[in-house]
Amino acid sequence: MATPTSLPETARRSYWGNVWSTIKSTAVGMGITFRYLWSKPFTVQYPDEKLTTDERYRGIHYLEQDLCICCNACAKACPIDCIEMEATRHGKELEWHQFDLDYQKCMFCELCVYPCPKDCIHMGKEYALVTEDRGTLNMDLLTWQGLTEEQKVRIAEAEAKKAAKKAAKEAAAKKKAEQENREEA
């Protein structure tokens, strides 16, 4: 009896066809798993070894603090306001108090990176954010707090320069005034 061709292929097979296809498909499947059994595992022993991340991977940010000018452009660009920063200006030098990034909120969208005028905030490679305390997720990206010795030196230099300039100006003004006084006299 001819079997109707509208039936699915599995239903059209004969008894021995079923037996054969079972044996064959099992053998093929077991061949595949046997090959997998001896292939090199894809996973690594995580805390000991780590997989290398892609070039474009977006992990925990890092900040080149010496370049940053505390312009707030990154904080404004962030759609969820994760970034908070604070610094005192000493002329050209910045005394950093805070540059916090809250990873409880951050979605690693990289939008904070593009607007930076100094190109000093980047997406890093580090991704392990496991913690027992949520507070630690509000991370401080600063490498140092306050003023460094070099900055202090530079500030002192700048101030000395300024003072010298001022002194020179004052001296010049004094000279001028004296001259004027003499002329009047």
Binding site: Y36, L37, P41, F42, T43
Partner: peptide, 10 residues
């Protein structure tokens, strides 16, 4: 172990 290695893990 067999399960792991068949699924290409350790």
């Amino acid at each position: 172990k067999v399960a792991g290695h068949i699924q290409i893990r350790l």
